[in-house]
Design a protein around this nucleic acid. Sequence first.
DNA 1: AGCAAAGTGTAAACGAATTGACAGTCATAG
DNA 2: CTATGACTGTCAATTCGTTTACACTTTGCT
Lengths: 229, 229
Amino acid sequence: MSDLLTIIGTCPLLAGLSEEAKASLLPLCRSRAYSAGEIIYPPGSMQSNLCIIAEGRVRICSSNAKGREAMLAILDVGAWFGDTVFSPGMPRVFGATAHEDCRVVEVSGEGLRDLLKCFPEAYPVVLDQVSRRLWSAMSVIQDDVLRGTEARIGRRLLFLAHMHNRSDDSSGVSFALTRELLANMMGMTRQGVHRVLKNIEAQGLIEFEYGRVTITDPAQLEKYVDGLE
Amino acid sequence: MSDLLTIIGTCPLLAGLSEEAKASLLPLCRSRAYSAGEIIYPPGSMQSNLCIIAEGRVRICSSNAKGREAMLAILDVGAWFGDTVFSPGMPRVFGATAHEDCRVVEVSGEGLRDLLKCFPEAYPVVLDQVSRRLWSAMSVIQDDVLRGTEARIGRRLLFLAHMHNRSDDSSGVSFALTRELLANMMGMTRQGVHRVLKNIEAQGLIEFEYGRVTITDPAQLEKYVDGLE
DNA sequence: AGCAAAGTGTAAACGAATTGACAGTCATAG
DNA sequence: CTATGACTGTCAATTCGTTTACACTTTGCT
């Protein structure tokens, strides 16, 4: 089990903090373990804590009365979530759930905001991070409205491939992903995803087995997806 | 025609700047007029300027090859846009178009970022503004995925009503809005919007004429929309 | 007043994705 | 190794919104 300072060090949001600043942050942190499936916070909750993943993965999602689920992301170790840190007073739009057994460091939102005022050199990094999230969110909105399911799924696959494979081999990329999970990410049904996936497979661009998808030629998939618009 | 300082003063993003800081911002600004329909910048363009509306209204939108349009917002005087200010290097996701004849003050992104480092007391306001936009964007994503068209339109109407009518009379709110415009905002067709609108009207919650919608009882509409989920 | 342009109502045909239902496959623990 | 639970493929029925097509208002300009 790694120590608090190490975890803080892995979080890109806090990368602008000096060692001294990080040290003053420690008293504002508390670490907590969650078992798979446990709710870290539900959608709509009023808190402004910052959460940093120390171990395991966390699912950012929400669901409506009919049981339909919308998943925004699955975050890995080092990632931060709880975007209301800097807009306290707003309810959490999405909730957070332990996707696996995991450990999360929670930082007091108020404490962090105060701390930043004392160490303003960290602001540019924070602003950059939040701004990037905004950019991503706007991309999602655009895709949702402007593109059909096939293009959306294709783009999502490419995005996931990008995450799982830093070295951009132009060769195939393979990663674990159930269709059920993908369906939730896309706000679609398992069956709907299946049909689209089979269609893309028919173009020879992907292959898929049990809990796994392989993009045989990422570059060509990208071209195909762009051709759909 | 109001002067640069006045305009800067109306922009909530820059509300944290001292008078001195605002003065040093002036050399980084240039004002430009656009006629209705003119493109301020297209989607995908690589710039990181901040834009502030001095006169008229601006449409934030994007469209695909098939001519389908997605509109994110219509902004009024004083509002800012150009969300890549703090994530330079990313292409603009949406474009900006003059919705009417208008005048826009553009502030150098790089200049603004540098200026903030000299006046760090303005950071909290900036961060708050960007963070709120992120919150709104996430709300839109959630609505798109989780809600049906009727609930989405209902929520959008309530949001628009909120903008046009600060005093929250529980009495009716009326505002100019063509169905065509609403359709673009929602990523739907004019006919689709029409059907939904007629349905909500049948509940006695709204009325609509030529270029205008009236919410007869906002509170009840809200209750109705929430009941749909 | 008169005309063009923008906005609107309506309805049938179509299509895409969900719903619901069921049998089959894989993986891991006991 | 077999059982259980999670994941998957498939298909018909259905729902919802788009497409297509056309006639009708309203507004603003000359």
